[in-house]
Write a protein that binds this DNA or RNA. Structure first.
Lengths: 306, 306
DNA sequence: AGTAGCGATAGTGAATAACTATACAACGCT
DNA sequence: AGCGTTGTATAGTTATTCACTATCGCTACT
């Protein structure tokens, strides 16, 4: 049993297809096939049920795979430790960011991280909070940028900044006359919302408990992005609530849209970094944090580390 | 980096002596020496400070060693899991049973399986043959108890017993005078039948090709059970045909009902186990088969395996 | 200076892990 | 029903890796 064997095992469990798993491991299909067979013989258990239709993992196989993942994760930590021992700012950093932050943060973040730590390339993934948390725990990601609250065993978080919410209106909307909008007024508005899975959607619904998507004029845009919603607001399809960094136009000014703050107390979300407690490259995390705070994100309020 | 390398690393950290560490690993000193050097090159860190006097572990080396110990510990768990899982009679077995067998078989089967394989809990589902077949192929079930014929690609069957059909009459019915009932006599009887989807319904209709449900006095009871039909017969709503195990009263004798066999050749159904050809826990299947045959099912005739 | 102890290096042989080619099994399609 | 497609297993070959023996070089102690 070698670490390579375990990598093959995990790949096959994920892909449920010898050919695809082999490709993912950059080896030929027979290589992986033989390795799995060897493992099964060594352990004297059947790990997979092979049939023409598909590859099914056995009950005991599943338990062994999850243990193998643990081994590989711990083994990966050895490399991390070595890298950290050398220089925490050398070697790639796998960064995850939620969808509602990525497009506004990353264009600023990437050059700043590169300037501060030129030998630390960023491998970036955008996804939902739940998916990022999964990848973080599996070791597929090193650090993630998410919105609080976020509680996971074995994961530590550090708040970075607070980001107020804004109301986005089409130009000429009657509310444009007002300096600030009370949250309660959203109840009857034709509110455009992101699909389920986006944490920001839930946060908006918390601001406005009367807003029930799909019951009034509110509409849910499954699989959509804040940018799409911006465009829909511009065409008069409704109004929306955005985090302040997303409310500022991406490039140039957009005379079709108007942004208004909420009346105090302004609703906001708290954005944080999260990583495994065991993650050794704390210096790398500090660089990310500094780079985020140095990024010009409209309206956000930095939080000092404890 | 292999698990062997890590074993060498840990041994050296414990012994602080290449020769002794090598001996403990049952390899030569050069082998271990080269392996450590290779590891250091791969990780690009100095793990040990070698001096003539002794071998000192570096700061980063100590952290890596403790991580390596964790990896080896987790890897050892894989073997433990394999040993624990080698027994086909350990771990839950997902068993499916058709509706017209479950209530009569399971009360006998469950304690017998538990006695024969105490660490193999049964997860039981009752359903129609078609649904069971689906689940079996998907892997949601491991073994199913069904009536033959049953042909599915990738599925093997093994006949367990034959079960004759019986006629169930209300007490005092004129046929009660007869020793046995000819099948042809059912054509004009007010026959109560299970709903479509139940294989037993189709088998009864095969016995009596003249019986067309819903056309004569025959009545189909959608979504019903054999027990419901028993009660209806008892109240004089009609007569029915039951598999012999279901014809025997569930508990106590029921003086409102009479059971009569068919005239030879007695119609019967053949009950079988079915599982995926690839299913590895054949020992578990043997236990199920034995437990079924050890169950006191009225009137059934065991079939020896080929 | 000589010698004992210890780790590193060189060179060789065996084990193994990778590849390509191909066999074999099961389905689906015409 | 036959044939092509898809997917895994096997055979045979090659390259790499791992472990061995022999030996060198360094340091410290006598």
């Amino acid at each position: 049993m070698t670490l390579t064997d375990l990598r093959y095992l995990v790949a096959l469990a994920r892909e449920r297809h010898f050919g695809h798993a082999a490709e993912r491991c950059n080896v030929s299909q027979p290589t992986l096939s033989v390795a799995i067979k060897k493992l099964e013989e060594e352990l004297a258990v059947t790990l997979f049920e092979r049939s023409a239709a598909d590859v099914k993992i056995t009950d005991i196989g599943a338990r062994i795979v999850s243990q193998a993942e643990k081994v590989l994760l711990e083994a990966g930590q050895i490399k991390e430790l070595a890298t950290a021992g050398r220089d925490p700012l050398s070697g790639p950093l796998k960064l995850g960011v939620i969808y509602t932050i990525g497009p506004y943060l990353l264009p600023h973040l990437i050059p700043r991280v590169h300037a501060a730590a030129p030998s630390m390339p960023l491998l970036i993934q955008e996804n939902y909070t739940a998916r990022l948390a999964e990848s973080l725990k599996r070791g597929d990601l090193d650090v993630i940028v998410i919105a609080l609250p976020f509680e996971e065993p074995g994961i530590v978080t550090q708040a970075v900044y607070d980001e107020p919410f804004r109301v986005l209106l089409p130009a000429g909307h009657p509310w444009e006359q007002d300096e600030a909008i009370p949250a309660s007024r959203l109840a009857d508005a034709p509110l455009l919302l992101l699909g389920a899975g986006n944490c920001f959607r839930d946060q908006v619904l918390e601001v406005c408990p009367m807003c029930r998507p799909g019951e009034g004029l509110q509409r849910t845009l499954e699989g959509s992005s804040l940018e799409t919603i911006r465009h829909m607001v511009a065409t008069g399809a409704g109004i929306t609530v955005l985090p302040s960094a997303a409310a500022a136009p991406m490039s140039g000014s957009n005379s079709l849209l108007a942004v208004r703050p909420f009346e105090a107390p302004e609703p906001f979300r708290r954005i944080a970094l999260a990583w495994r407690v065991t993650y050794p490259r704390s210096g790398a995390i500090d660089v990310i944090r500094s780079a985020i705070l140095a990024s010009p994100l409209q309206g956000v309020k930095p939080i000092n580390p404890r």
